[in-house]
């Protein structure tokens, strides 16, 4: 195994071309070259805390305010999912719960775990960590479902006195929370995870290039 850094090279994270160390900008794609993004973890934590701060009110305030002839009811994220489940739509209720509760919480935990293990220089399970990172990156955007549902319902359900639906303040804080967690995950330089492997004994160079 040979990393670009060990060879005195730097990899362009945008187009994968390698350049001599010290080259400032990739000549092929124009992306700024950094062997390791040293400010990465700082940005990861900054976005992480902002996202968490936004996530708390997102669960306390209503996402939707529904006005019907029988009165006004406002539902939080969890309340909305319970209401769907009462209609017997367990599948949809599960989607809402997973997208707006399970995924966001798991994402906060996963990013914190990855950042902490890099800071501690953990050398085990590197591949699992890489995998975890990819899952976090892939799944993050799906949390926006609930915001979109609120958008659709508040545009559509405007039936004068019979029924009308309005968005609640949680729609904003929840959207912010999703966006900031996505930014947090994207700030993470995964090469920092893999640097731990060079910290252990280099080992004999194994020329196993099959694939």
């Amino acid at each position: 195994m040979t990393t670009a850094r060990e060879m005195g090279l730097v990899t362009c994270t945008s187009c994968a071309r390698v350049w001599p160390m010290g080259h400032a900008r990739c000549d092929r794609c124009g992306h700024a070259l950094r062997s390791r993004d040293t400010g990465s973890l700082q940005r990861v934590w900054a976005f992480w805390f902002t996202g968490l701060l936004a996530y708390i009110p997102a669960n306390l305030y209503p996402m939707l305010v529904t006005q019907t002839l029988t009165g006004t009811q406002s539902g939080t994220i969890v309340g909305g999912a319970i209401q769907i489940a009462h209609h017997g739509e367990w599948g949809i209720a599960a989607i809402v719960l997973i997208a707006s509760v399970v995924i966001p919480v798991a994402k906060f935990a996963a990013i914190a775990y990855l950042a902490l293990s890099v800071q501690r220089g953990a050398v085990h399970g590197l591949r699992h960590k890489q995998h975890l990172y990819e899952i976090v990156e892939f799944i993050g955007r799906w949390s926006m479902i609930d915001v979109f549902v609120v958008a659709i319902l508040s545009a559509l359900v405007q039936l004068s006195v019979i029924a009308s639906i309005h968005p609640g303040p949680a729609a904003l804080t929840f959207a912010l929370s999703v966006i900031f967690t996505m930014l947090s995950a994207r700030s993470f330089d995964t090469r920092l995870i893999w640097d731990a492997r060079t910290a252990i004994s280099p080992g004999p160079p194994s020329p196993s290039g099959h694939q």
């Binding site: 670009a4 090279l9 730097v10 994270t13 945008s14 390698v18 995964t190 893999w194 640097d195």
Partner: peptide, 11 residues
Amino acid sequence: DLIGCPMCDEV
């Protein structure tokens, strides 16, 4: 050409 892995820096 050389190609570097953007995720783990292997060349």
